[in-house]
Write a protein that binds this DNA or RNA. Structure first.
Lengths: 215, 215
DNA sequence: TAGATTGTTAATCGATTAACAATC
DNA sequence: TAGATTGTTAATCGATTAACAATC
């Protein structure tokens, strides 16, 4: 039986991977128990928030003691579904696509990229970071046959919508989108965008602000 | 005289680059005016929110007409400080570092990477995507002499804190951090984190949820 | 003019933070 | 035991959404 995964507020969901990083550090140091206070201090946030976030994963702590480290890690990992490796396709072997393929750590995050796609004839039927590269024409058919549910989209903006539609046609249910464009897809498709310009905008705005207040 | 940059709520700040993408698309199509309604439809958000967000940039629209496209673009670009190119250093030439160096578009986002740093002897004194690569030992001195204020941090977790401290020692005021670790730096240093695991966690959790509700 | 849109004030909603009893 | 921590309910805070007058 699979435990039911109850959802959480988006901000909570985004903090969970950060807790996990800390916890795995502590585990490597041989620590067995941890309190919300410790985690909070490490991340510079409020301990009440940590406690509330952790409770959404279903973990039960012990007053005065805190949480069993291994048990807590398991709960977070399960909540994020990182205990089940999910196969994925990646489309677009530009710099970013290659970087993601080469970043082994995503295996710790439940993501297993099993094939890559591009239009560049030079790349077809080669391997990049041990992953086979195929023509985009084969995407839909292969996705269906291999029952792929996650697509990583690292193509230029101009191709993003078209490729995303092919992913959906192939039965892909969730798209990790790195192209700075709003994908127009059916409502039941999960889209998670990584827009680097957002993050950079925050940085440059704040830096300008800082310089203005200094001047 | 530089116009004063008033700050905005973080969610607003993060939406502004997305508005800009849409507006530049419209500009390329030769359109001269735009209403909040149009932008909102394009992004699938509320038009009231768009109006409020835009007003934080200081733009004044015309009832019934909307906004002058060029004027609106200028306001957002100025608000994000993307009209002033800021020189930056990048440290860590792994896959991600190389991808960022190769992504010319950041020049549209006010970021100009003028030098890269690594420890790999093979890379030193070569050029990657037309940017010179230097030994990390030279980082502090060069940052000071060139008055660099932004550092892009794409090193492994194990090196992140140490390199970040070198950046600060070199006078860098804002760090765009891609290493999944909390940097411990003075309060006046601006840190903007890009934690891909956060985004991936949201995706895998939601996909698991979807499958659970289907089953 | 009538309809559409802006800009702003007020209401709602949801997340964070505070308070506190329970407890190892 | 006393102090520290959990889990939960209530209060606060801030962002989103609604309402509406002004206006081209």
């Amino acid at each position: 039986m699979t435990k039911k995964l109850i959802s959480a507020p988006l901000p909570t969901l985004k903090r969970l991977p950060r807790y996990l990083h800390i916890l795995q550090d502590l585990k490597a140091k041989g620590i067995k128990q941890v309190s919300a206070t410790i985690i909070a201090e490490e991340l510079g946030i409020d301990s009440i928030q940590v406690r509330k976030d952790l409770s959404t994963t279903g973990i039960i702590g012990k007053p005065k003691i805190g949480f069993e480290l291994n048990e807590l890690i398991d709960h977070i990992v399960h909540f994020l579904n990182w205990d089940n490796m999910t196969d994925a396709f990646l489309v677009g072997l530009g710099g970013l696509g290659k970087a993601i393929l080469g970043y082994d750590n995503f295996k710790n995050y439940g993501l297993n990229i099993v094939a890559a796609f591009d239009t560049d004839p030079e790349l077809l039927d080669t391997k990049v970071h041990c992953v086979g590269v195929f023509d985009i024409k084969k995407l839909e058919d292969l996705a269906q046959r291999m029952k792929i549910h996650i697509g990583v989209l690292t193509v230029p903006v101009s191709a993003a919508q078209e490729v995303a539609e092919k992913m959906v046609a192939g039965g892909i249910k969730a798209i990790w989108n790195f192209a700075p464009v709003k994908l127009k897809l059916p409502d039941n498709i999960i889209i998670e965008n990584v827009f680097l310009s957002q993050s950079l905008g925050v940085l440059t705005h704040r830096l300008a602000q800082l310089k203005n207040t200094e001047a």
